[in-house]
């Protein structure tokens, strides 16, 4: 398990370049199938609206997975992520036309012993914070 980023090369406050991830309905259908979460609020507009949502929303776990992808792309080895937790603060609304965009940024918040760092993530969609308290512990090289 060898991350490509070196522990000695990062400091508290080191920023990871921000990235944007487009999300459309096809992504949610694929995620429903792969995860087994077939709740219709993630693919059927009438059901989403009937339970008070503005439109179809992304699976929270899909959004969390994009944050995971952001961290593992930075670290190099996905096996370097030893702890990953988030709070879902707002839904990612995914309209039929145009979809949505997730904007994710992160920075090193803390350097732990034995080569690990805490990365704090920020995830926004349509100007709203969709994840809060999003943190990953990553074992660096």
């Amino acid at each position: 398990m060898t991350a490509q980023v070196k522990y000695d090369d990062v400091e508290v406050g080191t920023e990871i370049p921000a990235r944007s991830y487009p999300v459309d309905r096809a992504n949610l259908v694929m995620y429903a199938g792969a995860s087994g979460d077939f709740n219709p609020i993630h693919w059927r507009e009438s059901t989403a609206k009937a339970v008070g949502l503005p439109d179809v929303i992304a699976h929270g776990m899909f959004t969390m997975a994009q944050g995971g992808r952001y961290v593992t792309d930075w670290a190099g080895d996905p096996g370097a992520v030893v702890d990953y937790g988030v709070r879902f603060s707002a839904p990612v609304v995914v309209p039929d036309e145009g979809g949505a965009v997730l904007e994710i940024s992160g920075k090193v918040e803390e350097k732990l012993a034995d080569g690990k760092v805490v990365v704090a993530l920020t995830a926004r969609s349509a100007g709203q914070k969709v994840l809060t308290r999003a943190k990953a512990v990553v074992r660096l090289a």
């Binding site: 398990m1 991830y21 694929m30 792969a34 997975a65 992808r69 096996g79």
Partner: peptide, 25 residues
């Protein structure tokens, strides 16, 4: 691989055993 496809993640360590071995898995 299906799950990695669904989250849009092309990382070879999810798909290619040789790439995974190179990373120590």
């Amino acid at each position: 691989r299906e799950f990695a496809d669904a989250i849009g993640d092309r990382n070879p360590i999810y798909r290619d055993p040789e790439a995974a071995k190179a990373a120590g898995h």
